[in-house]
Nucleic acid binder design. Structure first.
Lengths: 354, 354
DNA sequence: ATCGATTTGAGGTGCGCACCTCAGAATTTT
DNA sequence: AAAATTCTGAGGTGCGCACCTCAAATCGAT
């Protein structure tokens, strides 16, 4: 229990205490009020005063005490996660992590809400977003396919002063929206590389199954996957992407057809969010192809353990949630974000490192 | 900018404001002073009062406001990272992360120091630890091989009231020390599984090179690695562990000898912290074996990109540092730790998911 | 019943900052 | 020059909690 007297001498490898706003005011030769005005971007400060404060900040190495600031700024950030309404295992996991984060961040004065967007009806989804008022909400993390309606809604939200990040599924970067999620092309390439290595010298067809190829994410993953097999690999044929539309029956049907059409299937890449649908179909097949899926869920985890799945390419939902919240918070407080810390890693899971 | 008036009505998916200690005192029918005594584990409270407070905590769902608490408890935690003196690339990366974390946590009133321990001389290392006073330091994360001297020094530190976690290299769990790091047996098994899959139908010898097999970590990794090849794999021979002692010349020598003795080498598992030594030797060989190493460093990253390394099994140094600090802090504040959040993942890196 | 020990309550202080007010100073405009 | 405007400083308040003191109440044992 080390108390920290002001002006504590530097000892060992430790640093001394940090200057406060009072020290800053003194160093800058202005009053606390002016320091406050500069620090919090209030109006009515002359250029020379602003300059003096900034110079003093540099000189004495002032850093705002975030703990005290968030306490004093009796303002809990309210963030919304806008997620698709259709339920998938990955979304369930994500919701769990959001709930977990909500509990953890109550202590930090952050309130978390969830809004479900009707994917089938972009207009309705856009209206849900438009209904969010800046009074109720400081920031929104949006996971939705990019449509003109959504794009407009996002634009209007930002005009209302609500911070927005695009979450997991990337909105076009042109708008300058921060993106929280993995590089899907790299994720696809990762899956492709594993597939190729696991296949070794084997030859045959590789099937690719997506929920739908409408979404940017699936496209990017497929493109990344293909980069690995492009060129000199005549013995491996990556077949056109099959689409399941998240429908168990259709999944069964398209897979059965594909297996019939290509008796030499040696690999199966499950791009989409519902790999368990395909895995269920596959369970009945005798010689299983090398199978790689995305996202760790109870289903994929079990399949990995049971050997029905050879690898899973994953993005950590906990990280996604926390990163989105950190970015939104930084934006609210007009702090810079450390891009390096916010990069979501592409994780590879096999049975041994679960 | 949402202000949070007390007794704010619940809106949307948001939660209402949290009760304060004052509310808690009222609910428990005791005074603020008694609530304070219970919350902070001070003495002189009857069992019945303690009971009443805890019941009230449950009932009204009180949760301490960490922001206010850390501000009021004008006590900056001081934590030390005690690391080996011998420099490796992994340690350099680790030091970078520690420096980064130090900067980031100044705002949270946490001070971070680094202490280097002379590995060659356990007595000297133990003395360095013994010199740490509880006045100067609230917690220590120790990365060191377990020796009787270190064990005793740790014991004495704990008796002095300094919190300790064993860091990266595990001290025996018998002492009830929290451990921050990966399960090395699982990490070894992960490397083994990748090796086996990457080898496919190939047959031959697999070499294993460690810095030294003195450390528990290397032993565990080797054991985990072997589990994958145990039993029905006559075509793959995992050879006895070679030791480099971190010496470039010796590395070169033992590897050259091993390659001479086993012309059929198809795999190379680099257990230790200095894979770059072996990689340098390997660069001159024509047909490279499947090579797997531990820990992402500039060297291993480059080797992955250049194809000289096929996979890296990794533990994130940033996570390690933050997790150690979180655990130490939780111990200082007598808070429980969320074991699930503190599990360090075994990451798999290939060229595509860097 | 008396004494000591234990338990409790009331109250205060301060952490570092955000945010507010209002009066006075410095500057610009008329 | 006066008036209007912009800028500045001094001061206060409160966030939720930790930590402190001191007096009063309660308890147990003799």
């Amino acid at each position: 229990m080390v108390r920290l007297p002001r002006n504590a001498p530097a000892r060992d490898g430790f640093v001394t205490l940090r200057p406060t706003t009072k020290d800053l005011a003194q160093a800058a030769g202005v009053s606390l009020a002016t320091v406050d005005r500069v620090l919090n971007g209030r109006s009515g400060v002359s250029a020379s005063s602003t300059e003096a404060v900034h110079a003093a900040i540099e000189r004495i190495g002032f850093e705002r005490n975030i703990v005290a600031a968030t306490l004093a700024r009796q303002r809990g950030h309210r963030f919304l996660f806008a997620l698709p309404e259709t339920s998938t295992e990955f979304l369930d996991v994500l919701l769990d992590r959001i709930a977990e984060f909500r509990r953890a961040s109550m202590g930090e004065m952050i309130q978390i809400g969830v809004l479900r967007l009707d994917e089938r009806d972009p207009h309705r989804a856009a209206r849900s977003l438009t209904a969010i008022s800046a009074e109720d909400c400081d920031g929104v993390a949006i996971m939705a396919a990019e449509t003109p309606q959504i794009r407009d809604a996002v634009q209007r939200m930002r005009e209302r002063g609500i911070n927005v990040v695009s979450f997991i599924s990337n909105q076009p970067e042109a708008e300058g929206l921060p993106f929280v999620g993995i590089d899907n092309a790299a994720a696809g390439a990762t899956a492709g590389r594993l597939m190729r290595r696991f296949l070794g010298p084997r030859s045959g067809s590789i099937l690719v199954l997506a929920d739908t190829m409408q979404g940017r994410d699936s496209l990017e993953r497929r493109l990344g996957f293909d980069t690995i097999f492009a060129g000199a690999l005549p013995q491996l044929q990556v077949r056109p992407t099959l689409e399941s539309y998240g429908d168990p029956d259709r999944t069964q049907r398209v897979l059965a057809n594909a297996f019939a059409a290509h008796p030499d299937v040696v690999g199966l890449y499950l791009i989409g969010m519902q790999p368990q649908l395909a895995l269920a179909t596959l369970a009945s097949r005798p010689s299983a192809p090398i199978t790689i899926a995305h996202e760790r869920t109870p289903s994929t985890e079990l399949a990995l353990r049971e050997g029905r799945l050879d690898a899973v390419v994953h993005q950590d939902p906990g990280h996604l949630v926390r990163s989105a919240a950190r970015i939104l918070r930084a934006q609210c407080e007009k702090r810079p974000i450390l891009a390096s810390q916010e990069r979501i890693r592409i994780e590879i899971l096999i049975a041994e490192n679960l």
